[in-house]
Write a protein that binds this DNA or RNA. Sequence first.
DNA 1: CCTGGTGCCTGGGTGC
DNA 2: TGCACCCAGGCACCAG
Length: 300
Amino acid sequence: MRPAVDQVALATLRTVPELPEVESVRRQLAPELTGRRVVEVWWDPHPHARISGLEQAAGQVIRSVGRRGKFLLCPLDGPGFAGGIGASGARDAGLELVLHLGMTGALRLVDATEPTGAHERVGFDLDDGRRLAFNDPRRFGRASVVVAGRYLPDIPTLAVLGPEPLSPDFDPERFAAQLARTRAPVKARLLDQRLVAGVGNIYADESLWRARIHPASRRVGRSRALALHAAVRDVLAAAVEREGTTFRDYQLVNGASGRYLSELDVYGRGGLECRRCTATLRRIVLAQRGTTYCPSCQRI
DNA sequence: CCTGGTGCCTGGGTGC
DNA sequence: TGCACCCAGGCACCAG
């Protein structure tokens, strides 16, 4: 057993998990889950639960814990796995566990004897006597087992997910060209996951503020697009560095909070002073999302 | 294809 | 103290 981690909330997020929060959860889970065998799986029978294929996880070994955008990706190895070279000589198409925390999802490692939590939607009993519990009050999260890399039809967003913002795949010129091609508000483009993966409401507002771009802008020229590209990278990198944003009781394994909250410049600061120009930050609704920006230094 | 609008879901907050 | 709203928002889905 691992008493230092048992019973600890790995991610009781009040903040909606975006890339930095999911990456922080991934880093906590990876050493705990890698090499563990899933003994048994239980899941929520609710008709609207976004769950598929989980019966296939039983007996599988978790090979690693990865991430793409806001998705956690765990490649699985079957009981007889011996290197992945099948009779045909081609690499076997193994299975993959895909988790998305949605708005309120949280993952915990608990003792397997602990009763199912009130909002527990999925439980993976592991071969070390613990259970990976997926707690998700609003059922906006997702849990699926698919053939590795085959994300259609179950997970269409993952199938068309844009580049990882903190990798070289996120190319500034390509980003600028794609942004120039359509006329939706720039914030909507940041949120839709195809231009760049992992940006949600908080870090969209933060990035736009940093790049001095009005969230409702429908035309973003090359130089501003390049500034936005850099801002997205800088904001996400800084938030990962601080293990995400905690509003309430999101806790790390050691009990610490995500420390990006004090770094937020606009999100949650409507009516307060802009830290750059002292104008009053304004809160509007854009793309059906609460949006905060500085009317003085973010111009259309 | 592109875009905007609606529904899903429920804990927590507000106003009466 | 109780009750009826109403909001938060990632994503699926649909209509124009």
